[in-house]
């Protein structure tokens, strides 16, 4: 699989100015994802689960060296939260080529909690976290250890 580390941008830093008490996940972000480990994957969407408590989309990532395909699970916020930031249930469809930046799952699975999602065909950018999840992710990115 291909992945590269990315450095959170100024935009992500500005996002910490989220209203207090904004919608949050029903469990702690930090329990499942490591905000200090940002990975970026590219590939084709194979499936979208537009459901509660979290949406998911799955991406087939091809290792250019070997041709091996790995399926990555990308967790996004609840549909109601995502629709406040421009998503609809049709924003991602199987076959869409995407670049996904996210926080790596702690348990070693090919899974991430998606931040920036870019649709390759149109360049459209979406953001996968609700405001409070992003605040937790940012706190993790900036934590000392």
């Amino acid at each position: 699989m291909t992945y590269r580390r990315t450095i959170p941008g100024v935009l992500a830093a500005l996002m910490v100015m989220a209203p207090l008490g904004a919608a949050l996940a029903h469990h702690s972000f930090a329990a499942q994802y490591d905000g200090r480990k940002t990975v970026t994957i590219e590939g084709a969407v194979t499936k979208v689960e537009w459901m509660n408590p979290h949406g998911y989309f799955f991406v087939d990532v091809v290792d250019p060296a070997t041709g091996n395909v790995t399926s990555w699970s990308c967790e996004i916020a609840a549909p109601a939260a995502l629709m406040r930031s421009g998503w609809t249930r049709n924003s991602l469809k199987p076959g869409d080529l995407v670049v996904v930046e996210g926080a790596l799952a702690r348990d070693g699975a090919n899974a991430l909690n998606a931040g920036n999602v870019t649709l390759a065909a149109s360049g459209k950018k979406l953001f996968g976290r609700a405001a409070n999840e992003e605040r937790e992710a940012k706190q993790a990115r900036e934590s000392a250890n």
Partner: peptide
């Protein structure tokens, strides 16, 4: 309390 850019609508 500004909305984060992702929110897309004014608070």
């Amino acid at each position: 309390t500004p909305a984060p850019a992702a929110e897309g609508m004014a608070r």
